[in-house]
Nucleic acid binder design. Structure first.
Lengths: 250, 250
DNA sequence: CGGACAGTTGAATGAATTCAACAATCGTGG
DNA sequence: CCACGATTGTTGAATTCATTCAACTGTCCG
């Protein structure tokens, strides 16, 4: 691997927020930003059903399954996808530790997408029924849920824009930068990281063929924009990548 | 009310639910399905700021605008779009009477997309701040908001699948059927309706060129699937269209 | 060690785009 | 009420970006 020392980032399993109470279950964004400290913690515990671990490729839930749980990812990563009746599937998102899965099921009471672990992944199952009860008692929780869903919609809008209006090259550039930002926000290195998903998954997500992903990554590498060794990625010329990605307006 | 008996559809301005209190402002889905009848109506009135009318092409809000209002469409139709920094824009949805606009702004407190009237459109501005207050008092409202947003996410997933994995022909077929379903759910005719959006808008939304829309609609017409006169559409062979659209799995 | 999978690369193909010219329709003002 | 310019929609021909098919390499893991 790279012998470089210059980047002190890429630390051990991160601690995105103070390990208070619910931090043990990874529901960080759901709990922490709230005035939850005043809340009886036993309430929260009654909501979190149990901890589960999935192996690479394992199914977490699939379309049509009854909606009983929201999943909070503790570690690892997950892909969600939807599919046409003739079997073509489209990945709608890659999800990292700290994020919630299953939100789109709230309306119809059954999951609309499939979730599958990309690597060994551990998650908390949060009982939807009880969470709703709890949220009624503690408005700040429900409000936080609204914000999380609002953010979800916004990210979907970005993907829609990408799929509808961008060239393959722009898609890849944006994809790498998006990952970079997400890692940065988790205090990982924004310029050096490991892809937990295959080229096939990336291509599927971006709406281009696996081969096209390979070709363009090679092109980026030859142009000195990135250094890629198998799934290990190092972003070299962020500026140039941003220019290609044509970051979307405010 | 409607005098006809065979197809009582395509009636006058519809009345999707009992005209109780808030029905006058069109926030049907927001108010009606709830146990809101017991609520002091003055509360609701304090939330709805005012009624506005937009002309065809007029801007309702744009990205970066401060998030003050959620808009409930009373009549007419609206397109929402996002865009790249170099100006390419992607329409993310067409919205009909009874739907809410601006939901994705909740998280960041500013709109992420642009909304523009497709025709003369009237809407209610619902003060976001007050709505949040109200929601804290009446949990069912906030829960209803969650469901609406969950539904929004689900529709976005469908669009993502469409943009990522479907051919131009499938996109058009699905598009027509989607409209059909929406009109049907509003008690309009599912087989005969007027498009309020241009070919250009349709193509933009579906991620294909305007010319391609024209070509494929002509092809559909020649194949006897539809009859199209300018913006007036009649769906003839629903079955065939569904086969083409390859309706997505449960 | 060997089989399976993941990734890369080349060459041929194709679906949709772009460019362009034209037709139909709308709406506005004389 | 008609005319005219602008907008919107249609159609043809050439072009292109990405796909598909295929062969091959490297790597992981039992």
């Amino acid at each position: 691997m790279t012998g470089s020392k210059a980047t002190p980032l890429r630390s051990a399993p991160q601690q995105p927020c103070e390990p208070i109470a619910c931090a043990q279950c990874g529901v960080y964004r759901l709990c922490l930003p709230l005035g939850l400290l005043e809340v009886d913690l036993s309430l929260l515990e009654s909501v979190v059903r149990r901890k589960v671990t999935y192996k690479r490729g394992q199914l977490i839930f699939r379309p049509g399954d009854r909606f009983d749980f929201i999943y909070a990812i503790r570690s690892g990563s997950v892909k969600t996808s939807v599919q046409t009746s003739d079997g073509r599937l489209q990945i709608t998102g890659f999800h990292l530790a700290g994020e919630l899965l299953g939100l789109s099921a709230l309306d119809s009471r059954s999951y609309s997408c499939e979730a599958r672990a990309l690597e060994t992944t551990s998650a908390c199952m949060v009982e939807a029924e009880r969470l709703e009860e709890l949220a009624q008692k503690i408005p700040s929780i429900q409000y936080q849920m609204l914000r999380i869903m609002s953010g979800h919609i916004r990210r979907d809008e970005d993907l829609i824009l990408l799929l509808g209006k961008r060239s393959a090259e722009e898609r890849l550039a944006e994809y790498l930068l998006g990952l970079s930002r997400r890692f940065a926000s988790r205090n990982y290195s924004p310029t050096q990281f490991r892809l937990s998903m295959s080229r096939g998954d990336i291509g599927n997500y971006l709406g281009i063929a696996e081969e096209t992903v390979s070709r363009i990554l090679s092109r980026f590498q030859n142009a000195g924009l990135v250094a890629i060794d198998r799934r290990q990625v190092r972003l070299i010329d962020l500026g140039q990548l941003e220019a290609m990605a044509c970051i979307n307006a405010a």
